[in-house]
Design a protein around this nucleic acid. Structure first.
Length: 849
RNA sequence: GCGAGAGUGGCGGAAUUGGUAUACGCACUGGACUUAGAAUCCAGCGGAGCAAUCCUUGGGGGUUCGAGUCCCCCCUUUCGCACCA
C-alpha cells in the first residue's frame, strides 16, 4: 500500500491540463448531439488588462463548476471564453509607454490565456472570440449599417456626457453618480454630434420582457425597470399670453398662437399649477428671454448646468412672459428653472407647489403663489397648516367641477377633458434615453460611414467591410482622436459619387462588442460568410446560465437584451432574450475593502497557484461564501482548503489498494449473500443525502459552500469508520468493499466540479479510467434503517433533554422515556401533570405542563 | 429622500418546508509525535458561572405548544436610483 504519498499539485495539475488540451476534452467541435440536452454556460469575458485578478477567478470558478457538473449529467455543454479587447487601457498604455495597442493587447491576451489554462477551466478554446479582431468587428460594422438603414442608428447633436480624463463621451448608463464609470472623473456636459442607437424604440419591450426573466435576481430586474423608468401622464399645451418687462412671445409678428407643451403625471393637480418651468436648454427659454439682463441670467444658468451633472441648488428666473392655465384661465408666470430636464418629457413642466416638493421649494424661494387643490381624505378635513407640500393622493378641492373626485379618477377625467378640448394627450414617457455610442478614441471599432461634400452622410458598402482600424498611429495623448490626424485614413472617396469625402473618426462604444459576443461563440468555423448561423442560435441560445458581476446590471445586460431584439428584427434569428438565468457574483474583498492597488490589498492568483495549486485556490473561493455574497479573503482559509485537498488525496491513495479491485457491478439485494456492515450502510445513507442536496444546489441555487462542507463531513465519516473498523479488527466483505468504493467514487465526482485536477487524479488511481467517462452518482438504497433516533424533548417549548427512542416509536413510549429522564422530571414530575403534548415523529416531543 | 438586500460565536459561514441554533472551515487552547520546529494526528472551543443553572441569531413587541425562520415598529449597514415632473 502506498502510504501518505504527498499531493504534488504541480505534477498532477500539469498532467491533467496537458491531457485536456492535447485531447481536446472540452472542445465540442461541431457536436450538436441529437441525444443530448444542451447547456450553454457563460461567464462574462474579461478585458485583457494583462493579469487575471481574484474577481475573474471567482467568476470563472463558478462557471466551471456548473459546466463540469452539467457534463457529468449528460449535457452537451457550450462553455466558451474570449476577450473584450477594444477599450481605453490599451490606448492609454500606448500613450504612456509608446507601445502599439494591438501588440499590447495581444501580449496581454497571451498571458491571460496562459493564466486561465493554468487554472484548469474547461473552456472550448476553439471558439475563442477576440473583439478587436477584424473578423469579429466586421460583423459589428455590418449590424451598424443595417441599423442605420432601419433608422435604429442615427446621428444628432445633443448635450452629451463628457469625461475629460478619458477624453471621450459617455452613454448615460456609463455615468455613475455624476462620475465616469471607468476613471471616476467628474462628468461634464458638452454639445456634440453623436451617433446613437435607438434603444428607446425598444423601451416597452425591454420593460415588459423583464417579467419573463424569472431566472434573474430581482435586484437586477428592478434596476433595469427603474432605469427604463416608464411613466404615464398627460401632455398638454398652455397658451402663452402676453409679456412684461423684457419678456417676449414666440412669434412676435403674429402675437398669437404661441403655446408651450408640458408633461405631467399629476393631471389631477392642474388647478394648482401656478407657474410654468422650462429647462434652460428649452428652445423657448431663449425665445422668451428678451431683455439684456435676462439673457445674462440664462447664460449663467446654462453655464452652471454644463459644468456638472450634480445640481447644487434650485435656481431660475422669471422670463417676463405668462402662460394661461387652460383649466383656471388664469395668467401664470413662465420661469426658466435649472431643475427641469430638457431630455425628459417635453423639457417643460407645470409647477404645482402645493403638491410637489421641488415646485414648493422653488416657489418659496421666488415667492410664487401656492394653491392647495388636494386634501387628504374627506374624513380628515382638519388639515393642519404648514402641511404643504402634500404629495399623497387625496380628494380634489379648488378644482371647479372636478371638486370631490379622488386622485385616480381625477387624473382620468381631467386628461379626458383635455383631450376633448384638443389641447392635451395622454402619453407614456421613459427615463431611458438613446444609447450614445460615439467615442472620440482610437482603440475601438470604426464606424463605417463617410462624410461627402455632395452626398452628406454616406454608409460604406457592405462589400467593403471590414473597415480596418489603421495601425500606423502616433499616440500623443493630446487633443482629438489620433484617427482624426491620420490623413491616409480620413481622406477617402465617397462610395456613392466617388468624390472627395472624409471618414467618420469616432469609434464605437466597447459595450457594442460585448452586446453580441455570446452569439458569436456558437459559430465554430470563423471563415464562414456570416456572423453566426440561425440554427446554431436556435440550438444554443438562450444562455442557460450567465455569470458575472452585478456592476453590469444596467449597462452590458441592458445593451445585450436590446441588441438581441434588434438582430431578431433584422431577421437573424427568433430569439427574444439572450440570458435565461443570471447569477451575479459578489466582490472579492480583503480587510473589508475591494481589492485594489491603491489599498494595497491585492492577492495575486499566480502567487497562490505557485504555492498551493489551482485546485486549492478554486476550492477556497467556492467554499468561503455563497457566490452571490461578497467574499472576504483569508490567507489561512486558503491553507485550510489546501489541507483538505491533501487529506482527501491521502485518504484515497491510502485505501486505493483495498478498493481497486472491488467489483463495479455488485448485485444489490443479496446477490452475493454477503451481509452489508451496518457502518457501511450508514455512511452510504449519509452519502445519498449529500447527493440529493448537491443536485438541488447545482441546479440553480449554487451554494457550493454547503456541498463542499457536506463532502468534508463525508470524508471525515469515512476516515472515522475505517480507522474504527481497523482498530476493532473488522473485516470488509465484498459487499462492503463494493459500497465503499462506490462511496469514494461518489465523493470524488461530487467534488470534481470544484477541484477537477485532484479528482481526475484520484479517480484514475481508484478506477484506472478517466473521470470524464463517469457520470453523476446514482443514489443506492442499502436498506439502511436507522434503528434508534434522538428525540428532542421540550418542556413548555424549552429544550430540556434528548432521549433515545426506536425509530417510529409511538408518542406514548416517547413520553414514558422522557419521564424517565432526570432532567425532564425536574420540570414534570408525573404523567398526571402533563396538560398536553406535541409530538413530531422521530424528531421532537414538547410537553406542556 | 425613494427602492432592494443584509445583520447568527473571535472570523467566513450552516440551518431550503416554523421543530435539537452555531454544521463545515479558519483562528485559538491543551495533548501526542520530535533534540527542536514545521507538518500531521487527537481533544476542547457561543457567553456568564466552581457548579446546579441561566442567557444567546441587531433592539423592542406580537402570532404559535414551539420563531434565526412568520407579522408590526425601531436601529445599523451594503447596494442601486436620486430633481424623471
Amino acid at each position: 500500500m502506498e502510504k501518505n504519498k504527498n499531493y504534488d499539485f504541480n505534477k498532477i495539475e500539469n498532467k491533467w491540463q496537458s491531457l485536456w488540451e492535447k485531447e481536446g476534452v472540452f472542445c465540442l467541435n461541431n457536436e450538436r448531439s441529437v441525444n443530448k440536452k444542451k447547456f450553454y454556460c457563460l461567464e462574462m469575458f474579461p478585458y485583457p488588462s494583462g493579469r487575471i485578478h481574484m474577481g475573474h477567478v471567482r467568476n470563472y470558478a463558478i462557471g466551471d463548476a456548473i459546466a463540469r457538473f452539467k457534463r457529468l449529467n449528460g449535457y452537451s455543454v457550450l462553455h466558451p471564453i474570449g476577450f473584450d479587447s477594444f477599450g481605453l487601457p490599451a490606448e492609454n498604455a500606448a500613450i504612456k509607454n509608446k507601445t502599439n495597442p494591438a501588440e499590447w493587447t495581444e501580449s496581454n491576451i497571451n498571458s491571460m490565456t496562459r493564466q486561465l489554462k493554468r487554472l484548469g477551466f474547461s473552456y472550448d478554446w476553439d471558439r475563442i472570440v477576440i473583439t478587436s479582431d477584424p473578423s469579429y468587428y466586421k460583423w459589428e460594422q455590418l449590424f451598424f449599417l443595417q441599423m442605420l438603414k432601419n433608422g435604429l442608428a442615427y446621428k444628432k447633436a445633443s448635450n452629451v456626457n463628457w469625461c475629460e480624463s478619458c477624453h471621450t463621451t459617455l452613454a448615460n448608463e456609463q455615468v455613475e453618480d455624476g462620475k465616469c464609470w471607468r476613471c471616476g472623473q467628474d462628468v461634464t456636459i458638452k454639445n456634440m454630434e453623436q451617433w446613437f442607437f435607438k434603444i428607446t424604440a425598444y423601451a416597452e419591450e425591454l420593460l415588459k420582457d423583464l417579467d419573463g426573466l424569472k431566472g434573474w435576481p430581482d435586484k437586477v430586474r428592478t434596476m433595469q425597470k427603474n432605469w427604463i423608468g416608464k411613466s404615464s401622464g398627460l401632455s398638454i399645451f398652455f397658451k402663452i399670453a402676453g409679456f412684461t418687462e423684457g419678456g417676449g412671445s414666440v412669434n412676435e409678428e403674429q402675437g398669437n398662437g404661441d403655446k408651450i407643451e408640458i408633461f405631467t403625471t399629476r393631471a389631477d393637480t392642474i388647478f394648482g399649477a401656478t407657474f410654468i418651468a422650462v429647462s434652460p436648454f428649452h428652445p423657448l427659454a431663449e425665445k422668451l428671454t428678451k431683455g439684456r439682463e435676462k439673457k445674462i441670467e440664462l447664460e449663467k444658468i446654462i453655464h452652471n448646468s454644463l459644468i456638472s451633472k450634480d445640481l447644487a441648488e434650485k435656481e431660475g428666473f422669471f422670463t417676463g412672459s405668462y402662460a394661461i392655465n387652460p383649466f383656471t384661465d388664469k395668467k401664470i408666470p413662465i420661469y426658466v428653472a435649472n431643475f427641469v430636464l430638457m431630455d425628459y418629457g417635453t423639457g417643460a413642466i407645470m409647477s404645482v407647489p402645493a403638491h410637489d416638493e421641488r415646485d414648493y421649494e422653488f416657489a418659496k424661494k421666488y415667492n410664487i403663489e401656492i394653491i392647495r387643490v388636494i386634501r387628504p381624505e374627506s374624513g380628515l378635513e382638519k388639515e393642519p397648516d404648514g402641511s404643504l407640500p402634500y404629495t399623497l393622493p387625496g380628494e380634489l378641492v379648488n378644482s371647479g367641477k372636478f371638486n370631490g373626485l379622488f386622485a385616480g379618477e381625477a387624473k382620468e377625467e381631467i386628461s379626458a377633458y383635455a383631450e376633448k378640448l384638443g389641447i392635451g394627450k395622454r402619453v407614456v414617457n421613459y427615463r431611458l434615453k438613446d444609447w450614445g455610442i460615439s467615442r472620440q478614441r482610437y482603440w475601438g471599432c470604426p464606424i463605417p460611414v463617410v462624410y461627402c461634400e455632395k452626398c452628406g452622410v454616406v454608409p460604406l458598402n457592405e462589400s467593403d467591410l471590414p473597415l480596418i482600424l489603421p495601425d500606423n498611429i502616433t499616440f500623443t495623448g493630446e487633443g482629438a482622436s489620433p484617427l482624426e490626424k491620420l490623413e491616409s485614413f480620413v481622406n477617402t472617396k465617397c462610395p456613392k459619387c466617388g468624390g472627395d469625402a472624409r471618414r467618420e473618426t469616432d469609434t464605437m462604444d466597447t459595450f457594442v462588442e460585448s452586446s453580441w459576443y455570446f452569439l458569436r461563440y456558437t459559430l465554430l468555423n470563423r471563415s464562414e460568410r456570416f456572423p453566426f448561423k440561425k440554427d446554431d442560435i436556435a440550438y444554443w441560445l438562450p444562455v442557460d446560465q450567465y455569470i458575472g458581476g452585478v456592476e453590469h446590471a444596467v449597462m452590458h445586460l441592458l445593451y445585450s437584451r436590446f441588441f438581441v431584439k434588434v438582430l431578431r428584427d433584422l431577421n437573424y434569428f427568433d430569439l427574444n432574450e439572450p440570458f435565461e438565468n443570471l447569477l451575479t457574483q459578489g466582490m472579492v474583498v480583503k480587510n473589508g475593502a475591494k481589492m485594489s492597488k491603491s489599498k494595497g490589498n491585492v492577492v495575486d492568483p499566480d502567487e497562490l497557484i505557485k504555492k498551493f495549486g489551482a485546485d486549492t485556490v478554486r476550492l477556497f473561493i467556492l467554499f468561503a461564501a455563497p457566490p452571490e455574497k461578497d467574499l472576504e479573503w483569508n490567507d489561512s482559509g486558503v491553507e485550510g482548503a489546501f489541507r483538505f485537498i491533501n487529506k482527501f488525496y491521502k485518504t484515497i491513495t491510502a485505501y486505493a489498494d483495498i478498493f481497486k479491485n472491488a467489483g463495479n457491478d455488485f448485485a444489490m439485494g443479496g446477490g452475493s449473500g454477503d451481509e452489508i456492515n451496518q457502518g457501511v450502510k450508514k455512511i452510504v445513507y449519509q452519502l445519498s443525502q449529500v447527493i440529493e442536496k448537491a443536485e438541488t444546489e447545482m441546479n440553480g441555487r449554487y451554494h457550493f459552500n454547503t456541498i463542499i462542507s457536506s463532502s468534508m463531513e463525508l470524508l471525515n465519516n469515512f476516515n472515522d469508520y475505517m480507522a474504527d473498523g481497523i482498530q476493532k479488527g473488522g473485516v470488509l466483505n465484498r459487499a462492503d468493499k463494493y459500497l465503499l468504493k462506490y462511496f469514494l467514487n461518489s465523493v470524488i465526482i461530487i467534488l470534481y466540479p470544484f477541484i477537477p485536477h485532484t479528482c481526475s487524479e484520484v479517480y484514475e488511481i481508484l478506477n484506472g479510467s478517466p473521470i470524464e467517462k463517469a457520470s453523476w452518482p446514482e443514489i443506492k438504497d442499502t436498506g439502511y434503517i436507522q434503528e434508534k433516533c434522538n428525540i428532542a424533548v421540550q418542556v413548555n417549548g424549552k429544550m430540556r433533554d434528548l432521549v433515545v427512542a426506536d425509530l417510529n416509536a409511538s408518542e406514548d413510549s416517547v413520553i414514558e422515556a422522557a419521564l424517565g429522564s432526570n432532567k425532564i422530571r425536574k420540570y414534570v414530575a408525573h404523567r398526571s401533570s402533563i396538560k398536553k403534548t406535541i409530538y413530531v415523529k422521530n424528531k421532537l416531543l414538547n410537553i406542556i405542563a
